[in-house]
Amino acid sequence: MSFKDALNSGRFVVTAEAGPPKGTDISKIVHEVEALKGKVDAVNVTDNQSAVMRISSTSFCKILIDMGIEPILQMTCRDRNRIGLQSDLLGASILGIRNVLCMTGDHPNAGDHKEAKPVYDIESVQLLGVIDALNNGKDMMGNDLQGSTDYLQGAVVTPEANPLEPQLMKFKKKVNVGAKFFQTQAVYNIDNFKSFMGHARKYPVHPVRKDAGYNGVKILAGLVLLKSAGMANFMNKFVPGIIVPQELIDELKAAGKEKALDTGIDIMASHIKQLKAENVCDGVHIMAIGAEDKVPAIMERAGLL
């Protein structure tokens, strides 16, 4: 079943994430994502995440397709202007890529090429609109395409953003320009996430176009695997929009160095269980950050396998 069909089926969907390496040796990441095959519905491939230069997202998506894993192409607006983005979208389409996650992209300042010229010719809301046009046989200037794309376009949102209201306004714009699914920034406080979902559920069906064959905007809660108390503290300090509650940090601390990862897996599994049991959202997006081989264990403990 494709990712799109899985979303439309109404069952609880699971996606994971893979970050291509810097350099041409992909043996390690290929080995790690192998563990995800047949377990998750799709795997995101990051686009030079944190503005650190790596293998292109599109190329690694093609590797996943060849492995029998459905990819979600993450596409940021940081490195390509509107010509480059559209050209790469057409290119990804002929490689069989069918899902795109539209993002603004971390500023080069965060990465390993700080002197790079940031592009941001268009941004995430506009990129969603571009994909809608390409799906309808036109480029963003209205020129006819010889063969259109068939993308399921998604976007991101930060449920714990502070202040939340401007974030929600942008979320609504993304829905209005055709985002079909959202994968959120990491959430750890399920009550806060539920309150975000209260806002998000105001848009159950695409409010403008009511696309045929599509029954609403799907939201996958983003979950980042906690590997240690230090990692949790680091994210609290340096990653905007991520708030790891103190009680979880205490739990990781109490577990000690050797058991911390196992505790992190338990924490995520219990969050997934709760989200599914209470029908809070449409699925989860698991970001294991280098521990992709732990995803099956997480899913098992969450009762998904």
């Binding site: 603004t104 941004e123 809301v125 953003a161 974030q167 306004m169 714009k173 905007p240 929009g241």
Partner: peptide, 10 residues
């Protein structure tokens, strides 16, 4: 950005 804050707003 022209359409609102990015996820980096903090």
């Amino acid at each position: 950005l022209l359409n609102g804050p990015c996820g980096g707003t903090n």
